[in-house]
């Protein structure tokens, strides 16, 4: 088992290498040479050339790639071209609001989806299941953007239940800005989750031990909680782990509509302003987190699920 894990760990290196290659070569082509923009209004060719030298963009791609790898190793991304600020400190500042938006809605969604799926596992009627399916599929058939536009209009503007837009550093006060984005976020993600969890539970219910219990008239809440939920925990956990990187990145749309100063907004501005160091940093960091979490998920499976074959 140790050997398997070691192998698995070593395997992250080629992946990291691949990620760095893709990032570097695709993202280098984004949106224009920054020297032109930085040169300002009345630029001269000489000025632009000098800027290229300072930014290092005049150097060979190989050289730039080496620099990039070094930055990845040291996690020191330098200064943002556009914001003129240290990238790491900007990322740290943006992380808070992003997490405040995504983490609670992540857990609310989880709770809601689990409890709906679990309670429907209790009902066995075909009809109720079809209704649930239709309901979830309907939620999944409307664009995220439509939800945002309509809900912001109705709840914040028309009925004035929430502030339209904004952010605050004060803890309880900031909740008023977050409630509506949370709600929208839950509405969008709860549909597919219910369906996935229900399938998992259904599968567990169809197993022999449950059938036996059922035949004895024992399908109680206890079985539901103690066995079915417990036995489905592993796939659910790995699913959740795989979503954590998305949480870090925040939600681009929600952040922009509700004025939440998170990483999603920083990212899109970086892309739109050809702020290559920033784009590299954000992408590389989230890829790192993703790779690490995958490793963690595999380890969890290894420890708790005897069925995993050690290849």
């Amino acid at each position: 088992m140790k050997r398997y894990f070691l192998r698995r760990f070593l395997y992250t290196f080629p992946t990291l290498f691949g990620v760095s290659l893709v990032l570097f070569f695709i993202f280098n082509g984004i949106g224009g040479d920054p020297a032109y923009q930085l040169a300002g209004k009345n630029a001269s060719l000489e000025q632009i050339e000098n800027l290229r030298q300072q930014l290092g963009t005049h150097q060979s791609l190989l050289h730039q790639y080496k620099d990039f790898l070094w930055q990845t190793v040291t996690l020191d991304w330098g200064q943002s071209w556009y914001f003129k600020e240290n990238i790491n400190s900007m990322l740290l500042k943006g992380l808070g609001p992003s997490l405040a938006l995504t983490v609670p809605s992540f857990f609310f969604t989880l709770l809601l989806a689990l409890s709906v799926a679990l309670s429907f596992s209790y009902f066995r009627s075909e009809k109720s299941h079809s209704l649930l399916t239709w309901f979830c599929l309907s939620l999944m058939s409307v664009s995220f953007l439509t939800f945002i536009i309509v809900f912001q209009y109705l709840f914040a503007f028309k009925w004035g239940l929430f502030p339209i837009n904004g952010w605050s550093q004060d803890f309880p006060f900031v909740l008023s800005f977050l409630l509506l984005p949370w709600f929208i976020s839950i509405i969008v993600s709860v549909g597919p989750d219910i369906l996935i969890y229900r399938t998992l539970f259904q599968e567990e219910i169809n197993k022999d031990y449950v059938k036996t219990a059922q035949a004895k008239g024992l399908l109680t809440t206890q079985i539901l909680y103690k066995h079915i939920l417990k036995n489905s925990m592993l796939p659910i956990l790995s699913l959740l782990l795989s979503r954590i990187p998305q949480l870090l990145l925040g939600s681009l749309l929600l952040e922009s509509f509700f004025g939440i100063p998170g990483l999603g907004g920083i990212m899109i501005q970086a892309l739109q302003n050809a702020d290559f160091p920033m784009v590299k940093a954000i992408t590389m960091m989230s890829s790192l987190v993703y790779i690490l979490l995958n490793l963690l998920a595999d380890l969890l499976f290894l420890l708790f699920d005897p069925r995993v074959e050690l290849k």
């Binding site: 949106g31 224009g32 040479d33 920054p34 032109y36 923009q37 040169a39 630029a43 632009i48 892309l271 739109q272 302003n273 050809a274």
Partner: peptide, 13 residues
Amino acid sequence: INTWPQFDQKLKN
């Protein structure tokens, strides 16, 4: 549609 840097580059180039 361009981002500002793309636009700026096209103009200056």
